[in-house]
Simulated assay, not measured.
Amino acid sequence: MPAPAPPPADDLRDPSWDRALGVLTGATAATALVGADASLAARFLDPAPSPPARLAALAGAALDHRPPPGGDPLDRAWVGAVRTLVRTGAPPERSPDLEHAPADDPRGVSWRALTRTPVPRHAPDRGAFACAHLVDAVWTSYTSAGDLAAMYTGALAGARWGLSAVPLQAQRAMAGTADPHALLAATFALVRGHRPDRWPHATVLADEPRRLPPFAVPHPLDPDVLLGNIDHLRARPETFDAAVSLCRTHPTDAPGLPRADWVRVWLHDDPGRNPNLHFALDEAAAAVAALRAEGKRVLLHCWAGASRTPAVAARYAAAGLGAPVLPSLTLLIRTVGGHLDNPSLARAVARLSGQDLADPAAALFPGGTPPRRADLPDPRITG
């Protein structure tokens, strides 16, 4: 079985990275999705022999292109399916070994759940997302064969749809037993080797001149939500109880923040780089709403706090607070001194509320776009 090329080593915006990162996180998050025993996720990366650890070994072989342990043809077929999914976003056309595996074998169950569960019609204005197939497939396999089959399906479906399709509520629920950042770091180590000088093993954009002054302002419709940048996360932890991060982060950025109160979203600030854009924006806004419902002061931030942050803040205003979406986009971009360098974000937020926004600049700022915040970096620099 030839090993396909791994994801690009440097361009993390390539969707194949999203899919690679979905493998380990999808497997562990599946336990939270179906309410399985949390110890299954805890044992996933534990070197001690166990059924979850065996799944982790197979997933690891798929990501770093080792032969799977042993000579089992079902193992080879399952590993090959993961590799093809990461590379292409689609399963192999056929896999007879997996298709005809015993009814209770989690490898075959996961394949059949992935390929036979219908993919929902993508209609974001109705709250329907194609990538919800991940959750549907996990439940299909769980109903058929239980917890372990759900984990195998989470890995396969994560490889198809990506980390950005794994529900944030499930990621948050599993955070107590499976560190989300450790899963990312393990994936990167498998795909490109351990690189102590590179994210996720090191913090991102930490050196001058790319550090920004800490920035945060209250959400104009909910002052207990701060809208800021990553340097506020790093420098002012006393101002918030929880965070929703829309850029790459490192545990040292907020070492005192409980893992379950730190929601990290895989979201790029580049048009065409987010295959699950509507879902990711909606999930991020829902995470803000959930944390606020728990009485927490929330920092919603990206790297500069000027593009992704106002987009999610506007979706939170519309979905969580009942505000009209287009005025909310205008208000939030002005509030943070932001910009429309990536108009796909505004279009997606509007679409979630059933609005078409062909020309965001003309519709939101008919008198001309507002001035950018003075400290904002070159648009090409993003975390």
Rank of each mutant, 00 (worst) to 15 (best):
P2L: 08
P2H: 04
A3E: 01
A5Y: 01
P7T: 12
D10G: 06
D14P: 06
P15D: 04
D18A: 08
P51N: 01
A53T: 09
A56F: 04
A57G: 11
H65W: 07
G70S: 13
D72R: 13
D75C: 09
V82D: 01
T84S: 09
P92R: 01
P92W: 12
L98S: 12
P102V: 01
L114G: 10
R116V: 03
T117R: 10
P124I: 15
D125I: 05
A128T: 12
V138M: 12
T140H: 03
S141D: 09
D147K: 00
Y152L: 04
A159P: 06
A170K: 00
D179P: 03
A186E: 15
T187H: 07
R192D: 02
P213Q: 08
F215C: 00
L221W: 03
V225Q: 02
L227D: 01
D231N: 01
A235V: 06
T239R: 15
A242Q: 07
H250T: 07
H250P: 04
T252R: 15
A254W: 11
R259M: 04
W262P: 00
R264P: 05
V265H: 02
H268R: 07
R273Y: 07
N274C: 11
A285E: 11
A286P: 10
E294S: 12
V298T: 07
L299Y: 09
A304H: 11
P310Q: 00
A317W: 09
G322L: 02
L329P: 11
V336Q: 03
G337F: 02
L340F: 05
N342G: 06
L352W: 10
A358G: 08
P360Y: 05
T369W: 04
I381F: 15
